[in-house]
C-alpha cells in the first residue's frame, strides 16, 4: 500500500514537473488546457471520422486508447482490431453491403475532475453529448474515464469492467 502511494505521488510530481502544470492540494490535479484540448480534438476527429478509413485506421486514432484500456469487456486490443477491421471493410462496402457502424457527432465535450485520489495514475472524467441525425434525431450522453499517461497525453481508459452489459 505504501509503495502504491509512493508511486502515485511520484507520478504526479513527475507529471506536474514535466508538464509544468499546477498541481492543487488534496490530490486535485489541474491538467493543462492544452492536454485537454489535444485530447478533445483528437477524439472528436476520430469520432467524426468513423466512416473514413483514413481516420479510423490511423495510428492517431488508435493512440486514443491507454494500453490498460478496459471498457465493459473490451480491451485496447479489441478496439484496435475493430478500428482496423472497419478501416478495411469500409472501402469494400459497395460490393459487400457492409453496413458500417452508427455515427454520431460530439458536442459539449468536457474533461473534468482530474485527480490522483485513486490508486494509479491521474485520471479525468470525460463527458459529451452524442447526436445521431441519420434520419431521426437521437441524443444521448457519453461518460468515460481518461488517464494521463507519462508522455503527457490523456487517453481513454474505459470503465475498468471486464464484462459486457
Amino acid at each position: 500500500m505504501k509503495r502504491t502511494r509512493m508511486l502515485r505521488l511520484a507520478t504526479a510530481v513527475l507529471t506536474c514537473g514535466l508538464l509544468l502544470t499546477a498541481c492543487g492540494k488534496s490530490g486535485v490535479v489541474n491538467v493543462s488546457d492544452k492536454q485537454i484540448g489535444d485530447f478533445k480534438a483528437a477524439y472528436t476527429a476520430g469520432v467524426d471520422g468513423t466512416a473514413k478509413p483514413a481516420v479510423i485506421g490511423a495510428a492517431e486514432t488508435q493512440d486514443l486508447y491507454d494500453p490498460a484500456f478496459l471498457d465493459s469487456g473490451f480491451t485496447k486490443t479489441d478496439i484496435v482490431a475493430a478500428l482496423t477491421g472497419e478501416a478495411t471493410a469500409l472501402p469494400n462496402a459497395a460490393t459487400t453491403g457492409h453496413s458500417g457502424v452508427p455515427q454520431v457527432t460530439l458536442s459539449d465535450v468536457v474533461v473534468s475532475n482530474c485527480n490522483n485520489a485513486g490508486p494509479g495514475p491521474i485520471t479525468c472524467s470525460l463527458s459529451a453529448s452524442l447526436t445521431n441525425s441519420d434520419a431521426d434525431t437521437t441524443v444521448t450522453y457519453l461518460n468515460s474515464t481518461l488517464r494521463l499517461s507519462p508522455d503527457g497525453k490523456l487517453r481513454l481508459v474505459g470503465d475498468n469492467l471486464s464484462t459486457t452489459p
Binding site: 468513423t50 469487456g73 473490451f74 457502424v101 455515427q103 450522453y141 457519453l142 468515460s144 474505459g158 470503465d159
Partner: peptide
Amino acid sequence: AINPLLPVKANTAL
C-alpha cells in the same frame, strides 16, 4: 454494430 470509438455504454445508451 458497435462503434469502437465510443464507450460500450455510450453505444448501448444510443
